[in-house]
Computed example of a mutant assay.
Amino acid sequence: MEKLLEVEKSVASNSVLISDLTLRIDAVEKYSENTAVKSGKMDSQLSSLFAENKRLWDKVDELDAYKRRWNLRISGLADVLQSSIDVAHRLGPKLGYTRPCTIIVQFLSRSHRDRIWADARRSEVLKQKKIRISEDLTQRTKEARNKLWPLVEKARKEGRRAGFRGPNAVVGGKRISADDV
């Protein structure tokens, strides 16, 4: 009989513990559901913030690139056309004693800049004197072009027209973004 009473007490005690555990499990379950809802909202907000951040960086880069459209970088030359230049700056330290440092030039008008850019690309004199003129690109545009260069190079080797327009590659008339690669 005593053993039976002990078993009954044990069952009663276990019933109370089970009931208490059930209540705690229900509370944890509700907390977990609330946390999942909050997490879902935060994921949505985070996605929205990432999209907005990308849009804002693209806009900043676009504005920076637009401002740089008046600029050219000139390497290996110390004196340039003074009448069409608004501002010229030397970039970085002198590259040894054999070459002057790179100069960045902002022209008074885009037409001056575009004419010099077009002439420089075909100039044998500049090539002989090792004077190099390049566009003043933003860092993001340089990175995008570097990422897309293998596609452009491959297309050119295949005889197709390929080049760059801003940060995008243009291969066979189709614009390709670095994000697409």
Rank of each mutant, 00 (worst) to 15 (best):
E143L: 15
D58N: 13
D86L: 12
S75Y: 08
K129D: 10
E124Q: 15
T98L: 12
R145A: 04
R122P: 02
P100N: 06
G96L: 04
W149V: 03
D114C: 04
K147H: 09
V60P: 01
R90H: 13
I131A: 02
S109I: 10
W57K: 15
L56Q: 08
A120P: 01
R99M: 13
T98H: 14
V125T: 12
V60I: 14
I131S: 02
R73Q: 08
Y97K: 13
C101E: 06
L148Q: 00
T98A: 11
S123E: 02
D58E: 11
D64W: 03
I133C: 03
K127S: 10
S84Q: 11
L137I: 07
I74N: 00
S134R: 15
Y97F: 15
E135Q: 10
R90G: 11
A144T: 01
R99G: 05
K130L: 10
L81D: 15
N53Y: 14
D114V: 03
R90P: 04
L91K: 07
F107W: 05
D114Y: 02
K67W: 15
Y97W: 11
D136R: 04
K129A: 13
A118W: 13
T102I: 12
W117L: 11
P93T: 09
D64I: 03
K142Q: 13
R55T: 12
I116H: 00
Q106K: 14
S84Y: 05
